[in-house]
Structures are given as structure tokens and as C-alpha cells.
Design a protein around this nucleic acid. Structure first.
Lengths: 211, 211, 211, 211
DNA sequence: TATGAATGAGACTTCATTCAT
DNA sequence: AATGAATGAAGTCTCATTCAT
């Protein structure tokens, strides 16, 4: 009995008890499909295969559960192994990064996190800000760091590397991301993504490569 | 007396009775601030200074009211006089367009329509699609037409003008739009906007201008 | 102008201005189709081709309008020329009456008045009572009077003529009225109605005819 | 502990949790008093002494709650032990049945189910049909079966036993049911009911008994 | 008189949250 | 810890009625 109780305590106190993860998995799906308001705790409980009461054992309220998911999303994003090894040549690095980034955005359900957070950014500004800082801005910074290294070694001639990083990322989305997220087009094909990324890379280098 | 009667006739039958406009104005504010789900008809009625019942005299339901706002938004967008006179030189045209476009996106409450529609595009795909086609895609096309004219006259060397148009528009958002829409930064300053647009124009011309 | 006003006054003050009749006609249809609660004043106004406001010029409220219809219904019922001429022979009279009564009940929309009043009899007992007295009970009484005449002349041997009248009327409904009113069967065929009425008459005479 | 858990399981999963019955009891009263449209879920909740939300835990919507009551009513009807033992003599059987049937119809609140269903049969035909089939028609059939048995053994001479069954049931209502249901008279006295049933039986046998 | 715009009370229903077990 | 029954606030929408013209 004592053993059991200890076990129980461990489960909830640890960040990653299996129940907790189970809830997060179910909740993510529901939140991303239906949005913050569209997702009901009942639906989440069903998706996670736990009772509604159990949700409140692990999370104070709906909002806390949502933020926990974004937290997790941020961690996963951070772990996506963009290869920013400064030793790699710029063109290859940009193309690889662009491809990974675009796949992330346009995978089915991929735009959902962005969309979902965006939707409530006005009502819950902290959530929006944190998501931007942890996920989006962080990636810009990592690319910017890479660019700075190549500015330093004379490959590139860039004044504002943060801006340049953002520019490249925006270029990768050209003609693809908005139609996708507005449901005006399905996930783009591999060929089209390659074309767009090649074009983005060409344009970027035309502007910033030292000749 | 005759004048009064005419006034009466105008009220609901015309597309733009003053009550209707009054409701739309109140509703836009509430929808844009709180999102589709977050906005309640009660709140909208209060913001529009009419009774809840009156909302339903002019609009069949919450959804119809929302779409009417987007309709209106689309019209306004269409009326923004982007100057795409083919006779104007490319650099000026792009800068002017970029500035107008960016002001539209980043004006206080300006990004809200995009955000709000994006948020519900998953659950109401038609709404998303229509908004994309009427507002976003239309602007891309108008810019693309302009570019084609200058390809034709030999100023520019562009393979895919639709992609190029989209690229320029994305470049204008670089480093500004996402922070703004995620509430991670206030509306950007005029100076910063000019810088970003100048940089976008430079990059665009570096890639596409015939030398 | 004075003439017009006088005319106007006449219209409403008279029990049967054409507008009033127009409203009653529209309202009857709606009330009978949808029931008292199901009928909305808006629907009634549309059916009567007048404005909602006009309804309230002629009737104090929904309830008064409903009662006015029942009043009218009662009058019409009273005018249905059941032939209770004491000189006619009993069998023919019963069959003719039975047929007329059954057609009245089972005509499309015929059960509706009964049904509609029954529905609100619990909430508006006066309405139910009045309808019963004016329409249903009155018919029983007229038939009972006829029977009394034939008891007096020795054709029939009946103790309680009111009961007998009611019995004959119930017999006419056997196997037809309930299925019809519960929508479990369409209006019965002429043949079937004749059969049922013949059987009712046979049974009635078997019990009450002096042999 | 085990007992408690079992109890838990019973609560909603069983057809007859006590809460469910509590709701049905409150709802029946309100529905029968006010009709389907007149009854509000709030009133029902109050009558059942539960919260409005709880109603929706047990029943999908107002309509489902209403149908559950009719279902229950049908079961009760089915359980009324009309004694149709073919061995009993016809006169006694008819009188006993007539009395039980009439008490059922005219008991305070007893006619209400019929009235309430009849009232909405036009707008909800399925409900009407089902109620007719389950409650009214079924009783007719049971009586008809009994009559057939006595036709077979030569006691009765009936052509159409279904019609005859219906005729007897209608005769039992004569002079009693309509005044009762239109609130034009209170529940009839025992004496009067006996008189009416005796008269009905006499008439029935005068027509159908083999002499 | 006739209109129809406007209202606000109230209907049904959903859902985040609590609590006894 | 886990459950799920129960709640009540709040949401969308309808409709009888009023009132200025």
C-alpha cells in the first residue's frame, strides 16, 4: 500500500508520467483540430482515454493544459535537427533548412499549432508571445547565427543578419503557405516545394553572396 | 413626408442601412479582438449598441454576420488603390506597394482579419478559402500582372511571375509580421518598415532586374 | 379625408372587415398546421399577407387571435347542415349524419382544430371548455334531440338519449379516427368509411330500435 | 467498496438509475401539464429537482426526454393486466376491460399522454405513429384476439373483430372522454363510468352475441 | 390604419469545473 | 490517483409585443 502510494506520487510529480503524456497526446490532437475554443474538455478526455476529472488532476484548467502542449511543441521544435554546421556551404545549408522548415509548416496538421496559437494571441497575449519567442524567433536566430558566421568568413555580405534570416524563411513560404493554411490548397507537392526553395535560395544568394 | 418614407424603405432593404453598418462596425471590433468563438452575440450587441434581437433582424446567424464582415473587408481591400500603372518604374512601384501592403497588415487591428479567418479555416474551410481568394490571392495576381508587363517590356527577367509576386509580398513581412501578429511586438515604426521594404526591393531587383 | 377616416373606422369596428377576415384565414391555416405554440405571429403575418403590427390592430394578442378563430370555427360547425329533420327515417338519418361527421373529422386538416384545442386545454381551460361546448357538445345535443323525437314516436327505445347520441358518434370513429389523428394512417377511403358507418348504424339500431 | 463501485456502474448505464427516474417523473408531470412546447427544460429541471445540465446528461435533448416518457408510458400500458383469458365469459371480460381502460384514460393526468402526443403528432409524426402503435393499437389487438377466440367457439358472431374491438373501446368513452379531455368536466364518477360501460356492453352484445 | 424596425425575455443547449467516492 | 455524476453560467437564437412614422 505504501509502495503503491509512493508510486502514485512519483507519477504525477514527475513531468513525464505516462498518464500526463497520454493526456497531452490526446489534447494536442483535439486542440490542433478544433482550436482552443472548439476543443472541449470532454472531447479531450475521450481522445486521451481518461476521465474528465483526471484532466484536472494533472492540469489546473483548460488553459494550463493548452500551454503545456505548446511547451512540448516548443521542445520538439528545438530538437528538429536543422543542420547549421558553419562548415557546410551556404547553398546546401539554405536548401536543406528551407526544405525542413517548409515540411514542418505544411505537413498535415503542421500549420495547426501556428494557427491555433495565433487565434488566441489577442485574448492571451502571453501565450502568443511565448510561442513566438520559443518557436519562431528561436529558429530565426539559429539561422541568423549561421549567416553571421559566413559573413565573418567573407562568403556573405549581409548588413542585418536577423532580417536576412527572416527574409529567407519568408521566401520559402512564398505561394505555398498561405493557400495551405487557408485551406485553399492541399499540402504542396515535393516538386513544387523544391522549386520554391530553389528560387528562394537563388534570390537570397543573388542579393547577399559576395561575388 | 415623402422624404421620410423613402428613408424607411432604405433601412433594411438597402445593403447599407445605417443600422446594418452600425452592427457591422461593432461586430468587427469584437470579432477581431476576441476571435470567432470568443466573440459572443451579446458582446457584439453591446458593442454595436443594439439589442441582441436586432442582430438577427439583419443577419441570419453569427456565421452570416461574420462573413458579412469579411465581405466588407474584402471590398475595402479591393478599393485600396495600389498603383499598378505599368508606366511607373519598378522600384518605385514595388516600394509604394510594399508600404501600402505592410501598413494594411500591421495597422492596429489590421492583422486581425487574417488572424481571425486563419483561426477558423480548419472548421469553416469555405470561409477560409473565400477570404484567401478574395483578398490575398487577388492582390498577388494584381502584382503579378504588373510584373508580367515589365517582363514583356524587358525590364525584368522572371520565369514565374505569380511566384515572384508572392515572394515580394513575403519579403515585405520579414521580421515584422509574425512578431506583430503574435503580439510579440507592437506595430513596427515607419522607419523600420521603410528599411524592410527597401531591403525587400533590393533583394527582389537583384534577382530579377535585367542588367 | 374625413370620408376616408370614417371608412377606416368602419373597417375595424365591424366584426367582418376584409382585413380581419384576411388575418383570420391566414392564422387558421398556420395555427392548425403548427399548433398554438408552433405558430409564430411572424408566420401568421406572412400567411395573412399583412404586417406583424397589423395583427395587433385587430387582435389584442396571440391568444385573442386564436380564440377568434375557434369562434369562427364554431360558427361554421353550427352551419354544417346536418339533416335532423324528424320526419326522416332513423337509419338514413344516422348514416347521413355519420358520414358528414366522419368526413368533417377526417378531412385533411380536419382533426387539426380538435387537436389544436386539445393541446392547450390544460393550459387554457376556458378555451377548451368553450370549444367543447360550442362545437362538440352542441352536435351531440342536436343528435340527441333527433333521437328523442323518435323515442317519442315509438321508433326507438332509449333511456339516455345524450349518451346514445355520444355512443353513435364514437362508433363512427371506430378504427378510423385515432389512426388518422396520430398520423398512423392517411385519411380513410370512402369505402372504409361507409363500412364503418354501416356497422355503427347496425349496432346502434340493434340496441335501440323497437322491434 | 465493491458494493459502492457496482452502485456507480449502475447509475447511468442502467436504464433505471434513480436520477433518471427522478427526471422522468418530474418531466412527465410538466409535459403532461403544459404540453411539449409549453414545457420548458428549466421548469422540468425544477420539477425534477436537478440542474438543467443534468437533464442533458441523461437525455440527448428535449425530444429524447419526451420520447423516453412515452416509452415508459407504453410499458406501463403494456403491463396493465387486462384479463383476456379466453375462458372468461364475454360480458364479464368486456365490463372488466372497459372499466380498466376507462380508468386509464380518465384518471387525473391520464388522458394527458394521449392529449400531449396528439397535439404534436402533426409536427412529429414518428412520435405520434409510435405511440399509436405501441399503446393504442396494441390494446385493440389484444381485445380483438379475445373476440376472435369467442367467435371461434361460437359465442360471438363478428365479421371484423378488429373493428369490433375498436367499437367497444370507443363506446366506453361515450359521453365521458371528450368532456374530460377538454376540461369541460372533471374525472367522471365511478357510478357514471359503470353506467356507460354497462350500456356499451349491452349494445355490443346486442349486435354481436349469438342468440 | 398600417407598417416593420426594434426589443428583451426566455427557450434550448454546451461545457469547464467541482466533488463525493 | 481516478472517476464520472452533477452543476450553473453562458452561449445562440426565437418570438410576442411595442412604437414611431
Amino acid at each position: 500500500m505504501v509502495a503503491v502510494d509512493r508510486e502514485h506520487l512519483r507519477l504525477v510529480s514527475e513531468e513525464d508520467s505516462s498518464k500526463r503524456r497520454q493526456i497531452l497526446d490526446g489534447a494536442r490532437k483535439v486542440f490542433m483540430d478544433l482550436g482552443f475554443d472548439g476543443a472541449s474538455m470532454g472531447e479531450i478526455a475521450r481522445a486521451a482515454a481518461v476521465s474528465k476529472g483526471t484532466l484536472y488532476v494533472y492540469f489546473a484548467d483548460k488553459c494550463a493544459l493548452f500551454e503545456a502542449i505548446l511547451e512540448q511543441e516548443a521542445l520538439q521544435h528545438g530538437q528538429v535537427a536543422f543542420n547549421f554546421d558553419p562548415a557546410r556551404d551556404v547553398e546546401t545549408t539554405l536548401k536543406d533548412f528551407g526544405s525542413a522548415y517548409l515540411h514542418l509548416l505544411c505537413r498535415p496538421g503542421g500549420g495547426s499549432a501556428i494557427r491555433t496559437v495565433m487565434a488566441i494571441a489577442e485574448r492571451m497575449p502571453d501565450v502568443g508571445r511565448r510561442y513566438y519567442a520559443r518557436v519562431l524567433d528561436k529558429t530565426v536566430n539559429r539561422l541568423a547565427e549561421y549567416l553571421k558566421a559566413h559573413v565573418a568568413c567573407g562568403d556573405l555580405n549581409i548588413d542585418d543578419c536577423d532580417l536576412a534570416a527572416s527574409q529567407f524563411m519568408e521566401l520559402c513560404k512564398a505561394s505555398l503557405f498561405l493557400p495551405f493554411i487557408f485551406q485553399a490548397a492541399p499540402s504542396p507537392s515535393e516538386e513544387r516545394m523544391t522549386e520554391v526553395i530553389d528560387s528562394a535560395t537563388r534570390m537570397f544568394l543573388a542579393a547577399y553572396r559576395v561575388k
